[in-house]
Amino acid sequence: MALLFIMPHAITPDTTTTYSDWRDDLYRNGFAVIKAAVPAGRAASYVESMTQWLEKFPLGFDRNDPNTWTEEHLPANMKGGMYHGYSVSHEKFVWDARLEPGVLDAFSKIWNTEELLVSFDGINMTLPLPDTSHPKPARWPHQDQDSKIRGFQCAQGIINLVDNGPNDGGLVVMKGSHKFNDEFFKTHSMEKKEIWGKVPDDWHGFDDEEVKWFEDRGCEIIKVCCAGGDLIVWDSRTVHYNVLPEGQETRAVVYACYTPAALASAEDLEKKKEIFEKRERTTHWPHRNFWRATEILRLGKKDPYHRDRPFDEPVLSEKLLKLAGAMPY
C-alpha cells in the first residue's frame, strides 16, 4: 500500500501562484537556475579550497599535472568526482557555502520560511581525464524521493562554482518529469531493483525503458548549463543524473538541500544532532531517512587515510547549529 505523506499547509510550497521569477521554472519544469546566488569571487575561493582539500591527502595529486588527476592519486570518490567520505560534509568551506546568503534566500523563498534544515551532503570535483580512452560510467537516472511518497517533499540544490556548458560535466534533468510521478508509480513497480544494490530509502532508479516512458510524455532530457556562482534547485521527484566533462573544464560543486525544520520529528532532530556531532554524512534529505553509510572503500580496500573529522572544522555559529539540527529554532 502506498504511503501518503502530507506536509503541513503552512510550509507547503505554493506551486499554483505565478511568481515572475525562477520559482515559476521550478514548479513548472521541476528545476531552476538562480543566477549569481554566490558572488563570483567567493565561488572561486571555494574551488581553491576544494583543490587544497585534495592536496592534503599524500597520494601524489598535483593540480598542475593532469597525469595525476586519476583515481590512484585522489581520495575515494564515485562517478568520476563525487566525494562523500573523509568527513568532507563538514569541512569549513562546505559549511561556508551552505551558509551563503543567496543560497539560503532561495530555499527560504521555496518553503516560505527561514527556519530550515540542511543536508550533510558532499562535494563534486570532477577533473577532466588526461586519457579520453578511459571508459565513462553509465548514466544512472533516478529521483531522490521514496517511490511510495507523493508530492513535493524535498528541494535539492547544487551550488555551482565553475562555468559549465553543454560539453562540460554537470547535471542532466528530465524537464517536467516531476509532474508524471504519480502516474508513473500507478503503472510501475515501487520496489527497489536488486541491480541498484544498497541505496537510501529516498532513492529510486529508472532503466532505459522507464526513461523512454517519460520521454514519450514530452519530458525532454536537458543538460543544465550555468555560470560559476549560480545555484541549481530541483524537485526531488525530477528524474536526473550527472555527466562527466567531455572537454577540459573542471566541474566543482557543493551539494546542499534544504527543507523546513518543522517537517522533522523530535526523534529525527535528535538523530541529526548526533550525526552532526560525529561529523558524519546524510542523504540529500535534511529532515528524515538519514541513512548513515559505512566507510567508503578506496580502490576496493580500506583507506589508511580515512578520516572521521574534517581537516578544518566549521565555525559553530547559531545559524549553522540551527541548520544542522543541533540547536532548536
Rank of each mutant, 00 (worst) to 15 (best):
S89P: 09
G102R: 09
R251Q: 06
A10F: 10
A76S: 15
Y46D: 06
Y258V: 08
I11K: 01
R292T: 13
G169I: 01
C225L: 03
F57R: 13
G60Y: 07
E115L: 03
K179W: 03
G218R: 12
M78S: 14
R309A: 12
G197C: 08
G197L: 06
M82E: 07
W203C: 10
K278M: 09
A44R: 15
L116T: 02
H134G: 00
E313L: 13
A44P: 14
Y19H: 04
A97T: 11
N124M: 12
E100I: 03
L231K: 12
K179R: 15
C225I: 07
A324G: 07
L127F: 14
C226Y: 11
A138L: 12
D308T: 15
V162G: 02
D65I: 09
L320D: 07
T18R: 14
L3N: 12
S265F: 05
D230V: 11
H134D: 03
G169F: 03
R279K: 08
I110M: 06
W69Y: 01
D216F: 09
G81V: 04
S89L: 02
T187V: 15
L117H: 12
K278Y: 00
F290T: 07
A261W: 11
H306W: 05
K192Q: 09
Q248H: 07
S89Q: 15
L54T: 10
W196Q: 12
L104E: 00
K179V: 09
S119Q: 04
Y19V: 01
H90I: 00
I6N: 10
G228Q: 07
K271H: 01
L129I: 05
S177D: 06
L26R: 10
M78L: 12
H178D: 03
R139W: 01
L3P: 00
I110V: 15
N242A: 05
G80T: 13
T250P: 05
L323A: 03
T15M: 12
V47E: 08
F184G: 03
F57I: 04
E280V: 01
S133G: 01
G81F: 11
S177V: 06
K92Q: 08
K319L: 11
V33N: 03
